[in-house]
Simulated scan of single mutants.
Amino acid sequence: MAHEHSHDDHSHGQEHHGHGHDHDHDYGSLDKRRVLVAAVLTAGFMVVEALGGLLTGSLALLADAGHMLTDSVSLGLAWYAFHLAERPATNRHTYGFGRVKTLVAYTNGLAIFVVGAWIVYEAWERFQQPSAVLGGPMLAVGVAGLAVNIAAFFVLHGGDRENLNMRGAILHVLGDLLGSVAAIAAALIILLTGWYPIDPILSALVAVMLFASAWRLTRDAGRVLLEGAPDVLDRDDIARDLEKSVPGVDNIHHVHVWSLDGKSNLATLHARIADQGDASRVTMLVKQRLASAHGITHVTVETECGPCADGHGNHDCGAAAKSAEHSHSHTKRHGVAGSKNA
């Protein structure tokens, strides 16, 4: 058994990772400001919409105001998550605080489910007992809300949409925007026909439309928090690719691939090699291949010349050796048999 890490290669990987981190830091600073602007716009108009809902009796406005209240808090948390992510790593938090953004994204997804469920419940109650709604004031508040939400949406839309935290923020504002559209549509129908049930019906429709997006956000954030492999990366395909592409590698095993925040991917693996003297070269080539072919720039490689360093995995990392030994034995027996036949 032998182990070797190439410190120079590891440092190179860290430098590469650090360069990418600086780029992400610049992007994060812009996203942080975008989220703060959206939070201020949302919180400011939320008060106006709540008052409008109470005065007009519109569930669509009240539902959207409740959604905007939750969104204001969620956008504030998203801003604070970007703020925390700028802190450097510590001895206790060696990867820094980037995953806080994922935690907030997960919380935002759950919050959308809760608010949506409340809107559906209130819509059902209101549908059972329709109440009068002042269509004119409702239309005015809805149009003003739409303008504010469009402004907030475009502020966030220019951000990094691969970032889960930004995706959560955009989803919240999109929900507000759809709520304003529903309020305007309901107001117009009420003014033209006097049919009040349209108010709760459109409110519930907007809530249901958001459930699918909220589920995707919660699912993706949950996978990151559980350190699952990103959708774009397949552990077994990566192992096969390295075994085929990197000279000197006999077997790749104990591969772990995960993401810090849904964007920055990391990996650890064991590589069994034929000649321990090539350990540094193999480590360098493995890291280069992972960076160029799979976009993984933070990698830890453990090289081995014999059985796997982790005893419980010997059956995995010894598979190739057993296969080679079996092939050699089969050839030898076949050769002996042939000799006897001769």
Rank of each mutant, 00 (worst) to 15 (best):
S131R: 14
Y121G: 01
P137M: 03
D275W: 03
G306W: 12
F211Y: 07
R87I: 02
A182V: 10
K101N: 08
T94Q: 14
S339W: 10
F153M: 08
D220L: 01
Y196M: 14
K287L: 09
H328W: 01
Y27I: 13
R272Q: 13
L174C: 04
S74D: 10
L192A: 14
N91H: 11
D176W: 01
K244M: 03
G318F: 07
S74H: 06
R216L: 04
D24C: 03
V143N: 06
V35H: 09
H328V: 03
Y80N: 00
V141D: 06
G98N: 07
G53N: 08
R223G: 00
G194L: 05
L178K: 02
R289G: 02
W195A: 06
S327T: 06
A140H: 07
H5A: 03
A229F: 03
L54M: 15
N314L: 11
L233Y: 07
H334A: 11
P130L: 06
V208F: 10
D275E: 15
E4W: 08
I198W: 06
A147K: 02
L62I: 15
F97I: 01
G158C: 01
A207N: 09
V40E: 12
L242Y: 09
L54W: 15
T107R: 00
A111W: 00
A293T: 10
L217S: 10
Q14H: 15
F211N: 00
G109Y: 05
V173D: 06
H10K: 04
A169E: 13
D261P: 08
A50M: 12
I201V: 15
H67R: 04
G57V: 11
V40Q: 07
H330K: 06
L75C: 11
A60P: 13
L41P: 03
G222K: 11
L269T: 04
H7K: 04
E15D: 15
E325M: 01
T90E: 03
Y121F: 12
N251R: 12
S29K: 08
G116N: 02
L226M: 15
A239V: 12
A147G: 14
A65E: 08
G295D: 09
G66P: 13
L178N: 02
G159H: 02
D31Y: 00
A60R: 12
V155Q: 09
F97N: 01
D26S: 10
P200H: 07
M138S: 15
A229Y: 06
E125I: 07
N341D: 04
L139A: 14
R235K: 12
